[in-house]
């Protein structure tokens, strides 16, 4: 299928024009991929397997990684229990102030995370209302695990809420209407129709949030330098001993996170194959 341009010169065929676009885009796209991959690959490759194994056996390293994974999981569970109902309302109901609430949900993503940490300190610090209240229950935020959890919760909950909200918005409300007419109460419709149909969005939202929680440094460090999460440990080793000491810890953290992340992705992807949307 060749085209003749106005001046009589035979033009490129449609197919090769498409190839040209594909080629240029691939070249440009490759630049950013290289930029993203090279530092990580170099970081991993710079370690000998022995050093990595030794680092992985180090008690301090494994404890901090374990703590990080656990804290991020708690934060994710709390956000799921509270965020899914919120996401449903934001997607399904019209109410005054909805756009204001949406904006507040997005806010943690754009403010500096150290500032978020300071803001949390102003509520959950020992001298402030919530801090005092929880303190009386034996829960301390500053320099303790709950502090790490709320720091992660604050900065990474938007990832979950937005993802779930997207899922509910894509769900045809007529399916819910059909369920109502079939005799289901609003609660039954939510549990038996709406929720199962967005479970893929919930799962990937939880995964995104969990991963974002693990990587959080700024807000966590303000509330709890100790016990040390993995990002804080990497930072501390770098500050105190230099690059050579920070590198193996960073590598182990990245590798472990990748393993879990890819594993979860595969599970979510399998679900997707079972329930095409």
């Amino acid at each position: 299928m060749s085209l003749t341009s106005k001046n009589g010169v035979v033009g490129v065929s449609l197919l090769s024009r498409e190839k040209l676009l594909t080629g240029i885009f691939a070249g440009v796209g490759a630049l950013i991929v290289i930029f993203l991959v090279i530092p990580l690959a170099k970081l991993v490759a710079a370690n000998t397997p022995q050093v990595l194994l030794e680092t992985a056996r180090e008690k301090e390293v494994m404890q901090s990684i374990g703590l990080t994974f656990r804290a991020a999981l708690y934060a994710t569970l709390i956000a799921t229990l509270t965020g899914v109902p919120l996401a449903y309302l934001l997607a399904r109901r019209h109410f005054p102030g909805k756009s204001v609430i949406s904006a507040f949900v997005d806010l943690p993503m754009i403010i500096p995370h150290t500032a978020a940490g300071v803001a949390l300190l102003f509520v959950f610090g020992k001298r402030f209302f919530a801090g005092r209240f929880f303190s009386s229950l034996g829960i301390h935020f500053v320099g303790d695990v709950p502090g790490i959890v709320i720091a992660m919760l604050f900065v990474s909950a938007p990832f979950l809420i937005n993802q779930v909200r997207e899922g509910f918005s894509l769900l045809d409300p007529n399916l819910e209407k059909a369920a109502r007419i079939l005799g289901a109460s609003p609660w039954q419709v939510f549990w038996k129709v709406s929720l199962p149909l967005v479970k893929r969005h919930i799962a990937s939202g939880m995964l995104m949030m969990w991963a974002r929680g693990i990587s959080e440094f700024g807000a966590v460090v303000v509330l709890a330098y100790h016990p040390m999460t993995a990002p804080v440990l990497v930072y501390e080793r770098f500050e105190s001993y230099g690059l050579a000491y920070a590198r193996p810890v960073a590598t182990v953290l990245i590798l472990l996170t990748l393993v879990v992340f890819i594993g979860m992705r595969i599970i979510v992807w399998r679900e997707k194959k079972n329930v095409p949307h």
Partner: peptide, 17 residues
Amino acid sequence: PERRRVGMVFQKNLLFP
């Protein structure tokens, strides 16, 4: 609607996927 004892078939296929 759930207490009206009506059945309904819609224009669009609204089977639960």
